[in-house]
Structure formats: structure tokens, C-alpha cells
């Protein structure tokens, strides 16, 4: 499997709303903790080390 980098989320605006709603009312520190939990949950769901490694690379090297 390879990392999906083409649009894959139905109703992107709705998803984005939900993502922000998850952080609503949290301090910066609480948001950071939530993001860490979220990453672990999603990483376990993906479960493919090659895909996860490709995601780390893509996250570390955004284009200019």
C-alpha cells in the first residue's frame, strides 16, 4: 500500500468543521495532547509501517 495523497475525504468542509470542533475550548497544551492521541489512534488504524513512514516524510517536508 502507498500513502494516499489525492483527495479521499467525502464532504471536506464538514470534516474540517469536525476536526476544529474536537479542539474547541481547549488550551494550546490540551490541543497538543489531543493531537498526539489522535495521531496514535489513526496510526494504529492504518497499521502499515511503510504508509506511516511516507506520511512522516510528507509531513516533515511540505513544499515552499
Amino acid at each position: 500500500m502507498t500513502l494516499t495523497l489525492s483527495p479521499n475525504i467525502p464532504d471536506p468542509d464538514g470534516f474540517y468543521d469536525e476536526l476544529l470542533a474536537a479542539h474547541e475550548g481547549l488550551t494550546a497544551e490540551e490541543s497538543a495532547a489531543l493531537n498526539a492521541r489522535l495521531i496514535l489512534l489513526l496510526a494504529n488504524h492504518i497499521g502499515d509501517r511503510d504508509v506511516l513512514r511516507a506520511a512522516f516524510d510528507a509531513a516533515r517536508r511540505p513544499s515552499e
Binding site: 497538543a32 495532547a33 498526539a36 492521541r37 495521531i39 496514535l40 489512534l41 494504529n44
Partner: peptide, 20 residues
């Protein structure tokens, strides 16, 4: 520390986090 604490928090409810 953020990820360590996240693992410990998630492990209370979710078995997936315990091997970490």
C-alpha cells in the same frame, strides 16, 4: 513527553496502546 502521556492515557481504555 506528549506522545508518552498520550500512550498512557489511551492505554486505559484501548488495548492497541498497551504494547506501546
Amino acid at each position: 513527553r506528549l506522545f508518552r502521556d498520550a500512550v498512557l492515557t489511551l492505554a486505559r481504555d484501548h488495548p492497541f496502546a498497551r504494547p506501546l
